[in-house]
Amino acid sequence: MGVHKEQTTLVIGGGAAGIEAARMLGQAGYPVVLVEKSNRLGGVLNQLASSFPRWEDPVKFVEPRIKDLEQSASVKVLLESTVIGCQKTENGYQVQIKNINGAVEELQVGAVIIATGFEMMDLSGYGEYGHGAFPNVYDSLEFEAVLKEWSAGKKPEKPPVVAFFKCVGSRDRSKGYPYCSKICCMYSAKQAGLVKDLLPEAKSYVFYMDYRASGKEYEEFVRSVIEDKHVRYVRGRPAKVLPEDDRLLIRCEDTLMGVPIEVRADYIVLAAAIRPSRGTTEMAEMFGLETDAYGFIEPEPFQAVKVQERVFLAGSCGFAVETLGALQQGAAAAAQAMAVLNQAD
């Protein structure tokens, strides 16, 4: 019995998880078509100023992988393209892929890896924090761009006060989602620490209910942000942001003291809840995949990444996951695709 490498695997989404899956399959010599709707690979990683828990530059992590893909003879990358239709066939799926010029390509694939990722919750329902109403209130991804600017040397004239609010939309069944978005504790610590690295005279506050740092080196990372970078953690979920002169007055309860606490900040960064991206919703619908109550793609019981016969997920389309987890799932999805393409008769 030989190894079968005829059938193509379709990878939808060119972020960390999709890239990793395509790369593995390519390394093993399997034909891959990687479809990415934007004009570059890397997904959210392209937007990030740094990473946790080792302060590595995400670019250094994306670049070699993209090079692998470019050098691989069996991987075809389709940028600015989307999957617009699929039909189940005997050995997989017939899919239609549309590029930016409107041209539609037909493709027969033996396995599909969905890696369509997440988006941040729209914060217009959180008027108390003034996102969209007051200047200098950002969601965490928007703030990565500010951090990149500061990293590039375009720093504010005066050292600012920066406040990070965790759990905005997460753990909130009134206006958001009841779940914990899992990655915000870590990236908020990263952002708060980076502020102090870039602008040592700045003040950096993290408002928290609790911090969840269960991962290798995660607890040490948060502690070092507090102890070595001198980020001040305030326990309490902020209640209200009021514009005051040119600053933002934060009203909160210090729940350890049980007294009100006020901070006047120049920047407020809201760790918005992670929810399935539009692409995730569309692909789940198109391929007829199980989803949970929030629209995240649901694997089969006791399966890591298998969603249904010949369909696998990788990354945040299944639930919020950090970069390392996205890589793990990408690798797992690639392995499962290889397995299904080589099933013993």
């Binding site: 209910m209 309490g236 979920r237 902020p238 209640a239 909160c252 309860e253 009100p260």
Partner: peptide
């Protein structure tokens, strides 16, 4: 959830 959001803006 014991978060204190009720009290900070009370």
């Amino acid at each position: 959830l014991e978060c204190g959001k009720c009290s900070g803006g009370c």
